[in-house]
């Protein structure tokens, strides 16, 4: 172990004591796309104790340009990202316990995941779930690190409950559409710049170096060469319903509100049924095979017609590809899955 981490231990702010502390920690990474794979790899190599990863999606060819560790085979097999990532991370460092969940993260599920967690890292692609993370962070007093990217632009902020403003203080309300569906595309270097900042802040928290935290909201555009670092402490709002004096954690009601989500830049709608009933993939495959092309792996079933492709996961979620129209997606869902 000493040899594996020797260069990190030589870095004096971490040292033997910081490395020992890191080994005791449990991180929760929400999202296993561009940000998530990069963050997960860094903390696996660094020697965290346990990493829990949750992601609802599977690997596609369009991911390979920037989502590190995934391979052509993963895209070919449509392997769920959490599963593919776990496999790669375990090959990198078998000492780190990796727990992978193929799931849509709801407030209820996040409540289950945060037991014993020291830090949450944001690698999601939408504000609905970030606001849920933000409320859970405040409710359970767990720091989290916001990170996001689009095009050549990235942003990050470290949220410490009881100390810094929370995301709700800074944003006040979730922006209505437009922001997450990145028609602007994305280049890989901005991902690495954002995750470098997230992971550095994470290392400071987990190795007992909170004094070194940045305390600034940073953003950068690697194409237009703009860099900004601003002090947002003044935005901390005592009447904030997430982190103020009398918090009500409004975004934890999300479970009763959102059943569909348009996925970032993918011409895809996700439908999450309210029923907790798990589908029988094998039987569904038999039912659908006369109607179109059906492919199956242990985690999901893919059903293609001339116009659309629907993917059914073990937890009952369905991704409807080929549309961004929620009502059309619902109609296709009900046509084929009842």
């Amino acid at each position: 172990m000493e040899q594996r981490y020797s260069r990190q231990i030589l870095f004096s702010p971490i040292g033997t004591e910081g490395q020992r502390k890191l080994r005791q920690t449990h991180l929760l990474i929400i999202g296993a796309g561009a940000l998530g794979t990069s963050i997960a790899e860094m903390f696996t190599r660094a020697g965290a104790g346990k990493i829990t990863i949750a992601d609802r999606d599977y690997v596609e060819w369009s991911n390979l340009q920037r989502q590190q560790l995934y391979t052509e085979e993963d895209a070919q097999n449509r392997t769920p990202k959490a599963i593919a990532l776990k496999e790669k991370l375990e090959a990198i460092n078998r000492d780190v316990r990796i727990e992978a969940h193929v799931t849509d993260v709801t407030p209820r599920i996040l409540e289950e995941f945060v037991g014993g967690v020291d830090l949450m890292l944001d690698a999601t692609d939408n504000f609905d779930i970030r606001m849920v993370m933000n409320d859970i962070s405040q409710k359970h007093s767990i720091p989290w690190i916001y990170g996001a990217v689009v095009g050549s632009y990235g942003i990050s902020y470290t949220i410490i409950p009881g100390e810094t403003p929370c995301l709700h203080c800074m944003m006040e309300q979730i922006p209505l559409g437009g922001l997450t569906c990145d028609t602007a595309g994305i280049i890989s270097p901005i991902v690495q710049l954002v995750t470098a900042h997230q992971a550095a802040e994470g290392l400071k928290i987990l190795t007992g170096n909170r004094d070194a935290l940045r305390e600034k909201l940073i953003s950068f555009d690697l194409w237009s060469n703009q860099y900004s670092s601003i002090d947002v402490q003044r935005l901390k709002n005592d009447s904030c319903s997430s982190c103020g004096a009398s918090p009500s954690y409004p975004f934890l009601d999300y479970e009763n509100q959102t059943r569909t989500a348009v996925l970032c830049g993918r011409d895809t709608v996700q439908i999450r049924p309210s029923s907790k009933h798990k589908p029988d993939l094998k039987r569904t495959a038999e039912d659908l095979s006369p109607l179109g092309e059906v492919e199956q792996n242990p985690f999901l079933l893919s059903f293609s017609t001339d116009a659309n492709r629907l993917v059914l996961f073990q937890d009952g979620r369905v991704l409807v590809h080929g549309t961004s129209d929620v009502s059309e997606a619902r109609s296709l869902y009900h046509r084929y899955f009842g």
């Binding site: 690698a123 997450t180 953003s219």
Partner: peptide
């Protein structure tokens, strides 16, 4: 002026 946009991609 510094303008910082909150974006959602990841």
């Amino acid at each position: 002026i510094e303008l910082v946009n909150f974006v959602g991609g990841g």
